[in-house]
């Protein structure tokens, strides 16, 4: 399992007083979510993790190598990233070229590039749109296309900034499946998200950020079991818990299915 190790990290934007401050943190679980309010510093942390911005203090190690010692190409093979807005990166004439372009930054064998690009497009379900202009796709599809550009490169670690935002329902299911496949094949997936239902249902580890610091690391049940913390950092528990709390039930349920298992009777009635 790939491993990211942070120590003594301090970063302040040159024109802003906001500070990211993380003393010691490792990211080693296969499927990790980073949550927190707007402006908590999640995207800033992501930019630090891939070396797009350089911290004033501290180090970030990937599998024991400091990121500023990694060569650009080696870094691309280690970490792939997609940002919130797909329109910040699409510029090629066709969907197929867009995926191939990313890969051509680290690979020169045209046949390999083509094969990997086609595979990535199949994985995200865009194979039949390969010849279209990226900007003729829907927003969901453009977002899937940005995932394909990273999948084609097949890095060890995937970082996603709000991958589910603006995805329609079928695309969300597809993405969740892809996440699980990546984990199964030994990759590490770290995503920033605001979707607590999704975190509760799918993730094994969650980190909470507030004011530039990581204030909680643990499992979703540990997080949502601590209602004081959840409120303090400005999060909303999964919807099922909002309902059960209102009904006076203070146990932790991560999904509706969870609740049903506990209450066989209700489940039987539902069926």
């Amino acid at each position: 399992m790939p491993q990211i190790e942070i120590s003594g990290l301090r970063y302040t934007y040159p024109e802003h007083s906001f500070q990211v401050e993380i003393d010691r943190q490792s990211f080693d679980s296969p499927l990790t979510a980073i949550v927190g309010q707007n402006g908590a510093g999640k995207s800033t942390l992501l930019k630090l993790l891939i070396g797009l911005i350089t911290p004033q203090e501290g180090t970030i190690m990937i599998n024991g190598v400091s990121i500023d010692e990694l060569k650009p190409q080696a870094k691309l093979k280690q970490i792939g990233v997609t940002f919130q807005d797909p329109d910040d990166q699409l510029f090629n004439a066709t969907v197929q070229k867009e995926v191939a372009w990313g890969l051509s930054q680290i690979e020169s064998d045209q046949l390999m590039i083509k094969r990997a690009a086609d595979q990535a497009l199949v994985a995200v379900g865009l194979a039949d749109k390969a010849a279209e202009n990226p900007y003729d796709l829907s927003l969901s599809e453009r977002k899937l296309l940005t995932f394909a550009t990273v999948l084609a490169i097949n890095p060890a670690i995937y970082l996603f900034d709000e991958p589910m935002m603006s995805l329609d329902w079928p695309s969300r299911k597809r993405m969740t499946n892809i996440f699980h496949q990546l984990v199964k094949s030994g990759h590490q997936v770290i995503t920033i998200t605001h979707d607590m239902d999704w975190v509760a249902a799918e993730f094994s580890t969650v980190h909470v950020m507030a004011h530039g610091q990581i204030t909680f690391s643990g499992t979703p049940s540990a997080l949502f079991g601590n209602s004081g913390l959840v409120k303090r950092v400005g999060l909303l528990p999964p919807r099922i818990m909002t309902i059960t709390r209102a009904l006076g039930d203070h146990s932790v349920y991560l999904t509706p299915e969870d609740y049903c298992r506990e209450h066989k009777q209700v489940a039987n009635n539902l069926n």
């Binding site: 891939i50 797009l52 650009p72 691309l76 990233v81 807005d85 990166q89 990313g102």
Partner: peptide
């Protein structure tokens, strides 16, 4: 923002 996104792509 765009320059940043493209830098991340190599």
């Amino acid at each position: 923002k765009i320059q940043m996104a493209q830098r991340a792509r190599g």
